[in-house]
Nucleic acid binder design. Sequence first.
DNA 1: ACCGCGTCCTGTTAGC
DNA 2: TGCTAACAGGACGCGG
Length: 263
Amino acid sequence: MPELPEVETIVRELRPIIIGRSWEKMDVYLERCAIFNDVPNLPLGKITAVERRGKYIIIYLDGGYKAVVHLRMTGKLVWHATKIIHSKYTRTVIVFAEGGFLTFEDIRTFGGVHLYREEAIVSALTGLGVEPLTSGFSVSYLREKLQKKMAPIKTLLLNQAIVAGLGNIYVVEILYRAKVRPDRSGKDVKELGLIVEKTKEVLEEAINHNGTTISDYRRVDDKTGDFQNFLRVYQKENCPLGHPVTRFKQAGRTTYFCEKCQK
DNA sequence: ACCGCGTCCTGTTAGC
DNA sequence: TGCTAACAGGACGCGG
């Protein structure tokens, strides 16, 4: 569900709320959504930073620990300043010493909050590819990653080990703007400059609109994003030029594209 | 090594 | 209307 722009929105909203607050404990309502990795369920210090890497949220604590949160399909972080409103889907709750609660809610329970010692190497993070909004995401980087790949460009852009943070919605939108068919083999795609440019463009626009709310994604204050109003082909019948949008499955995921606009 | 499929869950929607 | 099957924005493990 949440992809890079949604996670970035959440991180930006979390920072002013929780940085400087003291982590008291984590109350667990569903075991698999709260993994402690031998970290004690005790005060872990003050929050010093909240960062995003791909679709992961990393919360750093000055007691020598860190929390890694992934929302997967339906996860939400919701801030409660005074008292918790429990939902049917509240899976774990971070309690702060000064007051305030950060609840992790997740219908499908794929996501979770994982605690680590600060120096722990988190394999889910070390395996990630470049951040698409940095200079590391360039034509030469993409060329190196795609030049020998038989897999379709859509599937390759979804691969977090190549680019960190893209999901189904944004890859569909990026390929439409880059005018590249999603079923072309990675090695055959020469429009790498366009893909790099449109990736940055779509992600930046989406961040400026606080992400895309199709169904479940919500911000920390439970508000929705707005970028769903600017999608051009994802879940559309027609593209902005009025051509019919084709829909098919690639590696189990629904792809939308325009046969006239994308070559 | 690469690539696609099945799987973890639950809620919603489309179709009969 | 009511039931059922398919589908949903992610990521990982497995097997071909």
